Computed example of a mutant assay.
Amino acid sequence: MRRVTLFVNGTSKNGKVVAVYGTLSDLLTLASNKLGLRACNLYNGKGGLIDDIALIRDDDVLYVSEGDAFIDPHSEGKMSDDISGSHTDWLTLNIGGRLFTTTRSTLVSKEPDSMLAHMFREKDVWGNKQDERGAFLIDRSPEYFEPILNYLRHGQIIINDGINLLGVLEEARFFGIEQLAEQLEVAIKNSHPPEDHSPLSRKEFVRFLLATPTKSELRCQGLNFSGADLSRLDLRYINFKMANLSRCNLTYANLCCSNLERADLSGANLDGANLQGVKMLCSNAEGASLKGCNFEDPSGLKANLEGANLKGVDMEGSQMTGINLRVATLKNAKLKNCNLRGATLAGTDLENCDLSGCDLQEANLRGSNVKGAIFEEMLTPLHMSQSVR
């Protein structure tokens, strides 16, 4: 078994004695753990690069670097004495427990107005604290500092996979490296894919339906289905709140108990659809076709279209017993031959609405606007108490 003593490149203090096993890569990993750095290279005492573990002998003294060139440890004292006079002096930073070796000119030259430049332009201006190895202590994240140091070295942004750009940006702002911060902001903006607002197709939605367990609530709030063909699909209990369903083909679709609150159904075709117990509060169905739809639930669950915009809709022949159309707008709508028995139409705008042939028995029309409405061929006579305006 061979034993060697490891020192951080450029120092001869706080060495670690370790046993040599396995490959050179294994020894570098061990050195990283023992010395708290990312070991990349091993040098002997004369600066020779060790590239094969077979070259290491028992009781060798080796110097570990993070990729930088060999620094003679015997020049350490001289460097400390001359540190204020030369802008090419080597120094070591302890960033969050990890050591980085660089030159003073690297920290000062590229971004002269940065915090790092002010910290290391002159000796002890900021009273920088050092650890027992002489490394300057800075309490920041080492993984985010590494790309910053490389930027100061060569002016390029090189960030390894898995490093969060937002973290590097925050460090750049902290150290006052403005040019890097601006470039990172652009890179972050460009890394976000543009939002896709294109409508979902029938094929995509059917695949979505098939992949969803039958007992799971299907949430489609705010999705864009504009112009999609969703005819004859089973869409029961689906939450379409605030979805864009304009110009959709929903003919003969089963929308029983679905939530269409504030959804856009303008120009959509829902002919023959099952709308038992549907919630369409404040939805926009202007110009839609709902001929022959069934809103009547035998169990007594009533469809709710309160406040809906139904201007110009065609609902001819629809079954709407007990439906709630309170304060809805049905101006110029066609409701010929509809069953509106027991419907709530209080405060509803029925101006110029065609209600001929409708059954309005027990319907509540109090406060509704029936100006120009057509009530011909009514199945049951309209009682005076049902309409007050």
Rank of each mutant, 00 (worst) to 15 (best):
R98A: 01
T101L: 01
T102R: 00
R104I: 05
L107K: 05
S109N: 15
K110H: 13
K110E: 10
E111I: 05
P112D: 07
P112C: 10
D113A: 11
D113G: 03
M119A: 15
M119C: 14
R121N: 12
R121E: 13
E122H: 12
K123Y: 15
V125S: 15
V125D: 14
V125Q: 12
W126K: 10
N128W: 01
N128M: 15
N128E: 14
Q130F: 00
R133L: 13
R133H: 12
G134V: 10
G134R: 11
F136N: 10
F136M: 10
L137F: 06
L137C: 12
L137A: 04
I138Y: 08
D139H: 07
R140L: 12
S141V: 02
S141H: 10
E143M: 09
E143Q: 08
I148R: 06
L149G: 03
L149I: 14
L149Q: 10
N150E: 14
G155A: 07
I158A: 11
G162Y: 05
G162V: 00
G162I: 02
I163M: 06
N164V: 05
L166T: 13
G167R: 07
V168D: 01
L169P: 01
L169W: 04
L169G: 04
L169N: 04
E170D: 13
E171R: 02
A172S: 14
A172T: 06
A172L: 07
R173A: 02
F174C: 03
F175L: 12
I177G: 01
E178A: 06
E178D: 11
Q179W: 04
L180F: 02
A181P: 00
E182S: 10
E182G: 00
E182Q: 14
Q183V: 04
E185Q: 07
A187Q: 08
K189S: 12
K189Y: 11
S191C: 04
S191M: 03
H192C: 11
P193I: 02
P193N: 07
P193H: 03
P193L: 11
